[in-house]
């Protein structure tokens, strides 16, 4: 397959160089246009500074802390490590868009109920990471939960109540 790819004629089209913008991102289900941007802007920057969505937090800017976790085409990633222009025409779901109705979802209310929020800075990233985990693995055991949340740093709670919140979500979802 690779040999063919090399020898075949490469024409202009989808792969050709284009100006950086305008480009659109399907953001929480709605197409949004980005204009006047710089090529090096991260998705996190565009979300917070251009799209008015400050839920994704900006902390480490190197993929270490998970505060900026978003769903990109259905997979959880750190928005700081996504070049915004590379998210063009992709579906991005931020913490603001997890619940289509715009209301607090069950993960968020379980965080409140379990007291899993202290300063709150890591909370949106954790909520997105839990959303991703329980979407894939509704019955995740405690070790799996710990591993799934290992890229989301919380410097206040010591994680106990966060893990408790995840268990609460699982319980409530199981009870229907």
């Amino acid at each position: 397959m690779l040999r063919e790819a090399v020898s075949s004629e490469a024409g202009a089209g989808a792969g050709a160089f284009e100006p950086v913008d305008p480009y659109s991102i399907i953001l929480n289900g709605t197409e949004r246009v980005v204009e006047g941007s710089w090529i090096g802007e991260s998705l996190l920057y565009v979300l917070r500074e251009r799209m008015g969505l400050p839920g994704s937090k900006n902390a480490c800017e190197q993929g270490e802390c998970g505060s900026c976790s978003v769903m990109l085409d259905g997979e959880v990633v750190c928005a700081c490590c996504v070049l915004a222009v590379d998210a063009a025409d992709s579906e991005v779901t931020t913490v603001e868009g997890l619940n289509a109705s715009g209301l607090v979802d069950d993960i968020q209310s379980c965080f409140v109920e379990a007291g899993a929020v202290q300063c709150g800075f890591c909370t949106p990233g954790l909520v997105v990471a839990v959303h991703d985990l329980l979407g894939r693995r509704p019955d995740a055991g405690s070790l799996e939960v710990r591993e799934a949340l290992s890229g989301n740093l919380c410097r206040c709670t010591g994680y106990g109540r966060i893990l408790e919140a995840v268990r609460l979500v699982q319980e409530k979802r199981e009870d229907g």
Binding site: A10, A14, A16
Partner: peptide
């Protein structure tokens, strides 16, 4: 400042 979003290897190489 330009960007390419190829869908095939040959587009990426060109």
């Amino acid at each position: 400042m330009r960007v390419a979003r190829p869908r095939t290897i040959s587009e990426a190489l060109s």
